[in-house]
Each structure stands twice: as structure tokens, then as C-alpha cells.
């Protein structure tokens, strides 16, 4: 059984009358990468701030490695490395001085450790330069380096991929995966880019208007994608072809113009074509059509929101 690193249960945050985060619960185990997915203003950053002790918790409980926030914040935060919003550090200090400053806030971090993490994020060559000469991507990487200095068990990264070029995104992705696999670090990551999240995360929490709508493992999401696949066949007699599929092959089918949509998997293609050809139907083209992750994501948001509206 893997250890639970972060346990968020029934957490609510209100600013005056506005509910920013509404009754959110989830857990992250060691080595797991949890992606927080949602549009801007959905409550991702606020939740992360509550986890890191930057913002007070209105209601509910957050436990990090079994320590309560914010009651035992001094113990709990020892296990947390965080990068919230833009990684703004001290522009007049060099990269190395910035890292040294953050290292000095913990016990027993040697200069070698600092250099090691700088190398890990690929900034070894630029450490002696002042921060104001760094590009956005470099600052981002330095931000991650400072979050890793004290070997945390939980890494909280708010939009870590924004501002990186495609190459940088790929490197960062691989890097985070390595951290999770090899160092067993639990990572909480937020983004509004589904494509990024899909390739990094083990679990995705979809958040909108402060509510955590759904928590899905990436495998189950993939299955949904698989399950949503259709075979689109262009034929000369679509109605006839449809009937054949339904009656003889027991495959659910729809007709759209000169196309038949078969709700089945790819391994049925041979059987379908053989049968149709047997009945003398001409086939002009066969395509596999799949739903995109975005569509599934939007469907989840729409369904849940509509469902909620219906209840109300």
C-alpha cells in the first residue's frame, strides 16, 4: 500500500461572499502525479495556496504526511516544495545566490546539493549570472530547483509549464516523471492545458467554479477515449448497410448522409467489410474516428454543471 502524502478533505475557501473553493476533497499518494485541470479562476491556485499555508482555510482539513495545516505548519511544510504563481525571486542576486538563500532556510543543504539540483534543471552554466538576465523558462526552472532543494515529499507546482518552449515542455515533463518514479515524490500540478496534463499525470482532477467535478485516473480517461471510438464507413447505400450492421452483426450504428457510423472497435473492420461486400455494397472509404480528450473534458464539465443546475 502506497503512503498517502496529501489528504485534502472537504476544504472550502470563501472571500467575503464569494466561494472560491467549494468542498474539495482528494488525496495524493507517494510517486503519484496529480493534475489539477480547470479554466482560469476555477480555484486551482487558491487550493494550492491553502495547501502551502499561504491562505487560510475557511472550512475542512488538509493533512500533509499526517500533519495538519495550518496547525502543524512548521512540520508539514518541511515536506513541501512549492512554486506558486510566477517564480519571482530576487532579480539583483545571481541564480546561485537565490538558491543559496532558499537553501539557508533549511538545515543541512550543502553547496553540492545546490549544484546538483541546478544541474538537474539544466542551469549549471548560468548560475553566476544575475536573475534579471534569465529568460522566463530559465526562471521557471530555477523556481523548480528551489522547490526541490530540501528533497520534499510533496511538490506543488502552479502552472509550471507555462512560458516554456515545446522543447522545454518536453524536458520538464520527462523530468517531473523521473522525480515521481525514482524519488517517489508526490506531485500536485496545475494547468489549463489538457494536452500537457495528459502526458504527465497519473490522476486528473477537473475543477470548475471552485468545485472538484471529477477525479479520473489517466488510464480510465484513456479507456473513455477508447470506448468512444467509432468506425466511419462511406458507402453507396447507407441505410441498407446500417441494417446489416445492426441485424446481422449486432453492432450499434447511425446513419449520417452517405456514411454509416459503427460503434465498435477496430478489430471488427475486417468482418464488417467482408459482410458489406457480400451484400454487394460498394465501400468508398473507412476511417476510425475518435473523440478528443478536450471533448470528454468539456462533456464532463457540461454534464456536471448541467446536472447541478437541474438539481437546483
Amino acid at each position: 500500500m502506497e503512503k498517502v502524502i496529501l489528504d485534502v478533505s472537504n476544504v472550502t475557501k470563501t472571500f467575503g461572499n464569494r466561494v472560491a473553493v467549494n468542498n474539495v476533497s482528494f488525496t495524493i499518494k507517494e510517486g503519484e502525479i496529480f493534475g489539477f485541470l480547470g479554466p482560469n479562476g476555477a480555484g486551482k491556485t487558491t487550493t494550492m495556496k491553502m495547501i502551502c499555508g499561504l491562505t487560510s482555510i475557511t472550512k475542512g482539513q488538509i493533512r500533509i504526511c499526517n500533519y495538519d495545516m495550518p496547525k502543524d505548519s512548521e512540520k508539514a511544510l518541511q515536506f513541501v516544495g512549492a512554486l506558486i504563481e510566477n517564480p519571482l525571486m530576487y532579480p539583483n542576486m545571481t541564480g546561485l545566490d537565490n538558491l543559496k538563500y532558499y537553501a539557508s532556510l533549511y538545515k543541512n543543504i550543502s553547496k553540492d546539493d545546490i549544484i546538483k539540483y541546478a544541474r538537474v534543471v539544466g542551469l549549471e552554466q548560468r548560475l553566476k549570472d544575475k536573475l534579471k538576465t534569465y529568460s522566463l523558462g530559465m526562471k521557471q526552472r530555477l523556481g523548480i530547483a528551489q522547490a526541490l532543494l530540501h528533497s520534499p515529499k510533496l511538490l506543488v507546482l502552479d502552472e509550471p509549464l507555462s512560458g516554456l518552449d515545446p522543447n522545454g515542455v518536453k524536458e520538464m515533463r520527462d523530468f517531473l516523471k523521473t522525480l515521481a518514479r525514482e524519488y517517489k515524490i508526490a506531485i500536485l500540478i496545475s494547468s489549463h492545458m489538457l494536452s500537457d496534463m495528459e502526458q504527465i499525470c497519473d490522476t486528473i482532477g477537473i475543477i470548475n467554479n471552485g468545485q472538484l467535478l471529477e477525479i479520473r485516473s489517466i488510464t480510465s480517461l484513456r479507456e473513455s477515449i477508447e470506448g468512444a471510438k467509432r468506425i466511419q464507413i462511406r458507402v453507396d447505400y447507407p441505410n441498407f448497410a446500417g441494417k446489416i450492421l445492426v441485424n446481422e452483426l449486432q453492432i450499434k450504428a447511425d446513419i449520417a448522409g452517405n456514411r454509416v457510423l459503427a460503434y465498435t472497435t477496430e478489430d471488427k473492420i475486417t468482418e464488417i467489410t467482408q459482410r458489406l461486400l457480400n451484400y454487394g455494397i460498394s465501400i468508398f472509404g473507412i476511417e476510425i474516428v475518435s473523440k478528443s480528450l478536450e471533448q470528454i473534458f468539456l462533456e464532463i464539465i457540461n454534464n456536471k454543471t448541467r446536472g447541478k443546475t437541474n438539481i437546483v
Binding site: 502551502c52 518541511q78 506558486i84 528551489q146
Partner: peptide, 14 residues
């Protein structure tokens, strides 16, 4: 204002 205080407040100190 610059935000650097956030990187300080996430450290294990009251």
C-alpha cells in the same frame, strides 16, 4: 508586491 514573500511563506516557519 513582487511575490517573493510567497516563496518565503511556504517554508517550514510560523
Amino acid at each position: 508586491e513582487s511575490g517573493t514573500i510567497k516563496l518565503l511563506l511556504v517554508r517550514p516557519y510560523k
